[in-house]
Design a protein around this nucleic acid. Structure first.
Length: 99
DNA sequence: AGTGAGCGC
């Protein structure tokens, strides 16, 4: 389960997000996105959880919750550009496409 | 730099 976390405090680190999600289930990895030029946090990141059920539970609970004194946004992450994946859409998922 | 919509290498 790929999870997208946004509106993080610029002081928030991966370990803080890791700990928060570990409270709801096993966390595979956490990635905070930082600017490539300045190297400063962009204020959002990604969390990977091996258990989809725990991931959904974490999203429902951690979304719009408080972390490091700031409200955060937690959603399902969009799949990265995958032009190697067979078409046919099958399967699982169901991400809400804007537009 | 000192902010806050948004999707990573």
């Amino acid at each position: 389960m790929n999870i997208f976390v946004a509106k993080l405090s610029y002081n928030t680190s991966e370990d803080q997000v890791r700990s928060a999600f570990e409270s709801f289930g096993q966390v595979d990895s956490v990635k905070i996105i930082t600017d490539k030029f300045d190297g400063r946090s962009k204020g959002y990141g990604f969390v990977e959880m091996p258990n989809d059920a725990e991931g959904l539970a974490a999203i429902e609970d951690l979304n719009d919750s408080e972390m490091d004194g700031r409200q955060i946004v937690v959603k399902k992450a969009r799949p990265r550009e995958d032009n190697n994946r067979r078409g046919g859409g099958g399967g699982g998922g169901g991400y809400n496409r804007r537009y």
